[in-house]
Design a protein around this nucleic acid. Sequence first.
DNA 1: CTGAAAGCGCTTACAG
DNA 2: CTGAAAGCGCTTACAG
Lengths: 344, 344
Amino acid sequence: MASQPRPRIRDVAEVAGVSATTVSHVLNGKGRVDAATRARVTAAAERLGYRPNSNAKGLRSGRADTIGLLLPVGADLEQAHHVLAVEFYLTLAMNTVEAAFEHDQALLQLPPLRGLDDLRRFSVDGGIVVDPLPLDTRVAMFNELGVPVVTIGRDILRTQDPWWVAADSAGSTGMVLDHLAEAGARRIAMLSVDIGWSWFADAQQTYREWAGRRGIEPILVLARPDKLESSAVAAAAEVLDHRPDAVYVPPQWLASGLLRVARERGVDVPGDLLVSVGVDSHLARTSEPPLTAVDLDPASTARQAVDLLIHRIEGGEPAGPRLIPTTLHSRASSLRTPGAAHRP
Amino acid sequence: MASQPRPRIRDVAEVAGVSATTVSHVLNGKGRVDAATRARVTAAAERLGYRPNSNAKGLRSGRADTIGLLLPVGADLEQAHHVLAVEFYLTLAMNTVEAAFEHDQALLQLPPLRGLDDLRRFSVDGGIVVDPLPLDTRVAMFNELGVPVVTIGRDILRTQDPWWVAADSAGSTGMVLDHLAEAGARRIAMLSVDIGWSWFADAQQTYREWAGRRGIEPILVLARPDKLESSAVAAAAEVLDHRPDAVYVPPQWLASGLLRVARERGVDVPGDLLVSVGVDSHLARTSEPPLTAVDLDPASTARQAVDLLIHRIEGGEPAGPRLIPTTLHSRASSLRTPGAAHRP
DNA sequence: CTGAAAGCGCTTACAG
DNA sequence: CTGAAAGCGCTTACAG
């Protein structure tokens, strides 16, 4: 419990019989230092459990060795109905933490930013903004303060910005639609939402193009973006009115509403209707029936985002956006087993 | 995009026509400063968008104005089956962030700590360790470095430690058992797990005492702590072998296994079996039937933990542990509607 | 290869 | 009520 005073660089220098300068050189791999001296310094630092004071280091170097993470959820997340994506965000966060750690950076969780002053209170070398809205204000704040920023998800209106990492929505959509078509679907609808996140925007565009190429009239229903159960149910009812034989649902939070309405109408999944959702989750895996879903690989996404941010912090050239490949987990909801239709 | 140089305290001093000392006094509410001077300084700081450099501040004061949060999940959380509690942890994390922010503290997400050196790399004034195991190593590391620490959940073996905040497990258990008894249950079992978290340990003890007071033989089945689906199912089968008419399941991740086994055996919930789970979640709310569950109020828990930690950082006397009251959300799984039993 | 010295931007005795 | 000066623990030209 007794907090012994933390060793300073001069303590290490003393033990090693050199100057603080030399200790600094050794520890930071700068300058030329004799191998024997280097060994003595390393040993002394090790023995004392020396860790440079990050405030002093940061003050001198102007770097905080800290990056900020801004999730699109606040403290009121219990209320929000997109709680279904919590696994995704928590996985994203924990992987960001570990990736940052491996790069010798600490990870600051930023609260929702109400203004520039909120952001100014944190000293970070860079920031990661998750799920930017079109012309995202949070990104603008980082830019305004000259702090390097990278987004997870693309800001669909900042078309010149190369500093983002995102799961491949267009590719995923093509994969899902092809999968449903191969399973025999002829009238494939999309049930989505009108939020400006690239995951949804790109899915819609890809769906339209895909339908166009096949000369099919797209059936596209957008739920209200309020994430309320009632809106989900209303949109589900509307899409079923079109009598599709398959539905792709990029926003995973609309899936349970769709299943419920289908059940109420006696529409069997997968017998009468194939379903695939956009973001894999425990719920998708344990749903009845289990739902075919796209695995967005939040772990890789987080790591790529940290890499890209550090590249930007170090003044690197825009390395271009990074698209993260996805995987389709095919489950019972999209498997048309002959004879399984119209089970009682 | 152009990063204009950040204003320093001397810039503010210059604009206000005073010394840096006075600016510091005004901004930190120290010393006596003339009201007019104070106003000029405040205005100047405001106009320049001045924010003290936290590294300089920290170097001088020895404080980092940063607290660390250590969740019991790592980057591999997709694998772990306790993903069901992700809402709880994410809510905890986001509320910790906001509470810290309101106390002018930044919140560092700490990665899993493999040793003292990992912890030394972070400069934090204090730490919050979530769900400590008995004689928790992470807590020991903070103590070893002399960094104030507070736990969310009680370390059941460090009985002298008053620095914790936890949802009231004993109270919740009593509430659930009474609720089930009032609904008519006579043979109330507990399906839990042998992990040393206080939430589970206290629930078991309370259950035993409760049964003892009523002269009932407790039916207590503990699942293996590996969080595998197979272990959950095995434990569920074992508890149903005892033919209980109600089960309280403190670890929420065992609930779906119980429901599945009950369905397979033709045991109707709630007709033949009342069920209540320990941690409320979206899954509990949307389960079929919806599950009666304890709301642990992670938001209050997080805020109290931050309060307590700051109290400890400031050298306050042990204020004693803080028990967070819980709420029971009574849902269909524990409502014995006469005649509802043995629905097809 | 090594070290003395300056300075990063603050806060805090201390003097006036 | 106000300010000059020291110093927190580092890193980095610079000199030797």
